[in-house]
Amino acid sequence: MIVVPCPNCGPRNSGDLRNCGELVPRPDPSTASLVEWREYLYMRKNPADWVTETWYCRGGCRRYFTIERNTATNEIRGQEAS
């Protein structure tokens, strides 16, 4: 149970939040080609490294926010060692 620093609530157990995965910009649906759209839907960088990801503070403030987490270590930027 890692600790996720919610910008509103402070450090919370990750089980109190929902991880929404890697941040992927949403193309404009009125102009995006199907190929671009499906890259947005399915393709992920999935690095073993720092990744910007979205969390939803389901059990706390109910805000969406992004953090940077290292998927190789679960270290979160701005937070002390794991």
């Binding site: 609530c9 089980g15 109190d16 389901r58 059990g59 706390g60 403030c61």
Partner: peptide, 10 residues
């Protein structure tokens, strides 16, 4: 004031 899970209830 805070929100939390209590016995698995939000």
């Amino acid at each position: 004031v805070f929100s939390a899970s209590v016995g698995n209830v939000g």
